[in-house]
Amino acid sequence: MDEWLAIVAGAITSITIIGAFLVKVVDKIIIKPMDKRKADRAKEVELDRQKFERTLLERVEANQQPLAESIDRLNDLLEESQRDRVNLHKIAEVNVTAIGEHEERLDLHNERLIVLEVKNGVRKLAYKEEE
């Protein structure tokens, strides 16, 4: 029985050694190259994605540039328009004051004309009424 046990133990040890060797061989020949190919493919995919993103970003920036320029021009026009509006309000105030003064002078002239017409004997006065 001791011999049989020695034979079985020897066989198990031999199978274990051969199995470990086969696992290492399979790992070295099959698994590691497969993992390396996976890593290489992942790098290629990442590089392709980065290249695509760079190209996309360049195109977006190229398309966005005219919009940015247009917005800048519109902002400049808006500022200029606001300055013009302030100036126009100042001019309008001056004109309103001047018109008020002229209307007052016209009223005074109208009264003088009526007095002159009455003194010269013009009896018929016809005025259009304002609507």
Rank of each mutant, 00 (worst) to 15 (best):
L113F: 14
E3I: 03
I91L: 05
N95S: 05
H109T: 07
N87R: 03
A42H: 01
E69G: 02
V25W: 15
L78H: 05
E80L: 05
L78M: 05
L88S: 06
N110C: 06
E79C: 01
L108Q: 11
H109N: 09
R112F: 04
K36S: 15
N75W: 03
E111W: 01
Q82S: 04
M1W: 09
P66T: 00
I114R: 10
A42D: 14
E61P: 09
D107A: 11
Q82Y: 01
E44W: 13
I7E: 11
D40H: 01
D72L: 05
V26K: 07
V8Y: 02
E103G: 05
A98E: 11
R123I: 11
E103Q: 10
I71C: 04
A98W: 04
L47F: 13
K36L: 13
L78T: 05
V118D: 15
A20T: 01
V118Q: 12
L74S: 08
L125W: 07
V45T: 14
K128V: 02
L125I: 01
L56W: 13
A42V: 00
N75H: 03
Q64A: 08
R83G: 00
E117L: 12
R83M: 02
M1E: 07
E111K: 06
A39Y: 04
L77E: 13
V122E: 12
E111S: 09
E3R: 04
K124E: 10
K124P: 05
I91K: 04
L106K: 06
R85N: 04
I30H: 12
E80F: 02
F52W: 14
D40G: 00
V94A: 06
A42S: 07
K90S: 07
R112E: 10
A11H: 01
V23T: 15
E93Q: 03
K28S: 14
D107P: 01
F52K: 14
K51Q: 13
N75I: 07
S14H: 10
N63K: 03
A11I: 08
R73C: 02
R73N: 04
R59T: 11
L5G: 03
T55W: 12
G19C: 00
R112G: 01
I12S: 11
R123C: 07
N63D: 14
D48S: 14
L113G: 01
D2K: 10
E117F: 12
F21Y: 15
K43L: 15
D107E: 13
E101K: 10
K36A: 15
I91N: 05
L47P: 06
I99F: 04
Q50W: 13
K119D: 14
T97K: 08
G121Y: 01
E131A: 04
E101D: 02
I71Y: 04
A92M: 03
V115W: 08
V86M: 03
I17V: 15
I12W: 09
T97Y: 05
Q65I: 06
L125E: 09
E103N: 09
D40W: 07
R54L: 15
G121T: 00
T97S: 07
S70L: 08
A126K: 09
E111P: 00
L116Q: 10
V86A: 08
K119G: 06
K36W: 11
I7R: 12
H102D: 08
A9W: 06
W4N: 11
R54C: 08
D2S: 10
Q64R: 11
V115C: 05
N87S: 04
I71S: 06
E80I: 02
A6Y: 07
N95G: 02
P66W: 00
K90E: 09
V115R: 11
